[in-house]
């Protein structure tokens, strides 16, 4: 179970990373198309006008999708920021139970976010909502990815909560400790 969950968080984080890479590739293609047009104008040929349709809109969807997919992995990597003053001053036992409480609160808030996002995706499905740009993209697709990412985030927080309650060290705490030691 531990291995499956860790692979799930890491896999989603990689998917997010690859998506950011994909945005870079698409932008490069767009720039290349523009340079080809320029070159054509210089030698008095009709510019071929190679562009990626709706790149701004499509790229924004890719960005949002990547962000939500990466949330759980970012938690495990100790990436999400929080104030640790109180936790650091409390005795170990109290700090642990405060950690459980905080994870529970975060899990509840991410459950709210997931539910909200699912409502939106269903709404888009029901009304056949499509994007505004040159290529109409059904919004349920990127909004579905957003929902999945938030759901995984919720799972990761519950996972951390259980780990803490059992006296273990959750992924985010281990990663935070590594950063603190480096600094």
């Amino acid at each position: 179970m531990r291995r499956i969950l860790d692979r799930l968080y890491a896999g989603a984080l990689w998917l997010a990373a690859v998506t950011f890479g994909l945005i870079a590739v698409l932008v490069l293609l767009q720039i290349a198309g523009r340079l080809i047009d320029r070159a054509a104008r210089l030698v008095d040929l009709p510019p071929p006008g190679l562009t990626i349709p709706s790149l701004a809109e499509f790229g924004a969807f890719l960005f949002a999708g990547a962000v939500f997919l990466g949330l759980a992995g970012t938690l495990q990597a100790g990436g999400h920021v929080r104030v640790k003053l109180l936790i650091q001053t409390l005795p170990a036992g109290a700090a642990r139970w405060l950690g459980v409480l905080v994870c529970a609160a975060a899990a509840a808030l991410s459950a709210f976010a997931t539910w909200s996002s699912a409502l939106q995706a269903l709404d888009s499905l029901q009304f056949n909502s499509v994007s505004y740009g040159v290529i109409p993209i059904p919004l349920v697709i990127p909004q579905g990815v957003m929902t999945l990412g938030l759901a995984l985030f919720c799972v990761a927080l519950l996972d951390s909560m259980v780990t803490l309650a059992r006296g273990g060290v959750p992924g985010y705490r281990a990663a935070e400790t590594r950063t603190e030691e480096q600094a």
């Binding site: 701004a56 809109e57 790229g59 924004a60 969807f61 960005f63 949002a64 962000v67 939500f68 709210f112 976010a113 539910w115 909200s116 996002s117 409502l119 939106q120 990127p142 909004q143 957003m146």
Partner: peptide, 16 residues
Amino acid sequence: PELVFATKVWGGMTVW
């Protein structure tokens, strides 16, 4: 709130 959250966060994240 549950409808506001997704609407606003979706809008805020899908910015080129």
